[in-house]
Every structure is written in structure tokens, then in C-alpha cells.
């Protein structure tokens, strides 16, 4: 029975990380209709910034996490200002090509500075909690609690503040948002900044139990796309629930079937769910 609960913890850990990355991706898609393939690279840059601040500068884990979030938010805003904003009136394919360009640029830049080696970030939370045989490493607990706090904070920001409301308004009716005087540029920059912050937090939370390397964003971004398609493009609850579905499917599939198949399980689920509900789980109509 403990093994079963162990998989629940593993599923929640994975689901939390996937959910955080997918949230940033779905926010940008929901508001600007840009499928930001570079989001995985932002996740990777977040991990490297934490690595840099902790290992090279000697900052504490939490300080490094905050620093990484600020830097990745700036990188995300710059990508919006310098790349996506000038393409706003271009055919949609240009956004997609540009996003892949940013992804390749960031990966090459990181590889040029730090090389292609696998690196490790040590966490100050290395202890293991034992609840009557159910073993939870502290870092995994931190991931689950951290993701919960971030999602709750994001919801509070979006629902309870005027600034957050402008993001939702833009997603619900773009013309309506313009007509009340909401500044599209401001909302675009804010949305990219939030997506960058979420990616950096996810990377910093997950890096101590994983490895840090320039291509680390590839698998995560593929899963994040699966999640937002599955949850409904642009849907915030869809990203969270979708993240958990993929996380649990991988944890249980990996344990009860084989870890070799865990990536196939995510895509298999996508095929099954989209066959039943083509518009995704949380949208009322196909986008």
C-alpha cells in the first residue's frame, strides 16, 4: 500500500512541475495566442540562473530562486518586446518560427557559457520524512507545497487585483479590453513576465532532484504542450489539472508498467482524451 502512496507523491511532484510550466504557457497562449515554444528554454535558463547564483555567487537557495525568477522574467519580457511584439500583425506562422528561434538562441547561449555538461544543484532540504513507512524527501514536499502556494498566489492576483483582472479581460474579449482602455502592451509584458517567473520557480524547485543541462527544457515543454492541449488551450484550471493527470499517469505508468514507457503514456493519454473531448477538458468550445 505504501508503494501506491509513494506513487501518489511522485505523481504530485511531477504534476506540480508540469502544471507550473504549463500555466505559464497557457497564460501566454490564452492572451496573445502565441504558442511559445521558447517556454522550455525559459525553464532551462531558470535552472541555470539558480545554478549560477548558488554555485558561482554562493547565494542561498531561496535568494537564488528569487534572483532566477527576476532574470527569467526580464528575459521573457525582452523576448516579447524584441521578437513577438514586432510580429503582432504578421501571419501566425511567424510567431512560431520566432519562438523556435528564441529557443535555439537561448540554448546555444547557455551552452556557450556553461558547456553541455550535466550539472547538479544541491538543495538545503535534503532530509527525508518518514510517515509510517511512507517516505517523502523534503525537496519533493517543497515542490508540492511550493506549486500549491504559487498557483494560489496566481489565482489571488488574477481574481482580486485590477492588474490581474486586465489579464483575464484580455483573454475573454480582446476588443472589449481595448475599449475600456486596457493597455495591450502592458498586459503582454506582464503575462510574459509571469510565465517566466513560473518557469524559473518550477526549474529551481525541480533542479535539485534532477540534472541541469542545456537541453533540459525539451521534454518539459513537450509535456507542457500536451497538458495545455489536454486541459484546453488557454485554460488555467486545465493547465493545473492536466499537469496532475500527466504527472500521475507517468508516476503510476512508470511504476506499474515500465519507466521506459512513461513518455509514451503522456502522449497516449493525449490521444485518448482528445478522441473523447477534442476541445480539451476545460474549454466550452474548440479554440
Amino acid at each position: 500500500m505504501n508503494l501506491f502512496f509513494q506513487q501518489i507523491i511522485n505523481g504530485m511532484t511531477l504534476g506540480s512541475i508540469y502544471g507550473l510550466v504549463a500555466l505559464g504557457l497557457t497564460l501566454v497562449y490564452g492572451i496573445l495566442h502565441i504558442p511559445n515554444f521558447a517556454h522550455g528554454a525559459l525553464y532551462m535558463v531558470g535552472a541555470f540562473m539558480t545554478y549560477f547564483l548558488m554555485v558561482d555567487i554562493g547565494a542561498h537557495y531561496w535568494v537564488a530562486m528569487a534572483g532566477s525568477a527576476i532574470i527569467v522574467a526580464i528575459v521573457a519580457v525582452l523576448s516579447e518586446r524584441l521578437v513577438f511584439h514586432p510580429l503582432r500583425n504578421s501571419p501566425p506562422i511567424h510567431d512560431k518560427i520566432a519562438a523556435i528561434g528564441i529557443l535555439l538562441f537561448l540554448e546555444a547561449l547557455v551552452q556557450m557559457i556553461w558547456g553541455a555538461d550535466f550539472r547538479r544543484i544541491s538543495s538545503p532540504y535534503t532530509g527525508i520524512l518518514n510517515f509510517d513507512g511512507l517516505i517523502i524527501p523534503e525537496q519533493r514536499l517543497l515542490i508540492i507545497v511550493g506549486a500549491f502556494v504559487l498557483v494560489a498566489a496566481l489565482q489571488l492576483f488574477l481574481r482580486k487585483t485590477m492588474t490581474g483582472a486586465t489579464i483575464i479581460a484580455m483573454a475573454q474579449n480582446r476588443d472589449g479590453a481595448f475599449l475600456v482602455g486596457i493597455d495591450a502592451n502592458r498586459v503582454a509584458m506582464m503575462t510574459f513576465a509571469i510565465s517566466g517567473i513560473l518557469a524559473a520557480f518550477a526549474a529551481t524547485l525541480y533542479a535539485p532532484i534532477n540534472l541541469v543541462y542545456p537541453a533540459m527544457g525539451h521534454v518539459v515543454i513537450m509535456k507542457a504542450f500536451v497538458i495545455i492541449i489536454l486541459g484546453g488551450m488557454g485554460s488555467i484550471p486545465g493547465a493545473i489539472v492536466g499537469g496532475m493527470i500527466i504527472g500521475f499517469a507517468e508516476a503510476f505508468g512508470g511504476f506499474y508498467i515500465s519507466t521506459s514507457y512513461k513518455d509514451i503514456i503522456a502522449f497516449g493519454l493525449l490521444v485518448v482524451i482528445l478522441s473523447i473531448r477534442p476541445q480539451g477538458l476545460f474549454t466550452k468550445g474548440a479554440h
Binding site: 485590477m162 483582472a165 486586465t166 483575464i168 479581460a169 475573454q172 474579449n173 472589449g176 475600456v180 486596457i182
Partner: peptide, 17 residues
């Protein structure tokens, strides 16, 4: 061009953006 999933109050308050 309302914000359909937002409440009436939220719609009105966004008018004062």
C-alpha cells in the same frame, strides 16, 4: 464586447480602468 465569464461588478469596475 463584455467579459462574459466575469461578474457584472467586475465588468463595471474594469470600465474604470
Amino acid at each position: 464586447k463584455l467579459f462574459p465569464q466575469m461578474s457584472v461588478q467586475q465588468n463595471l469596475m474594469l470600465g474604470a480602468y
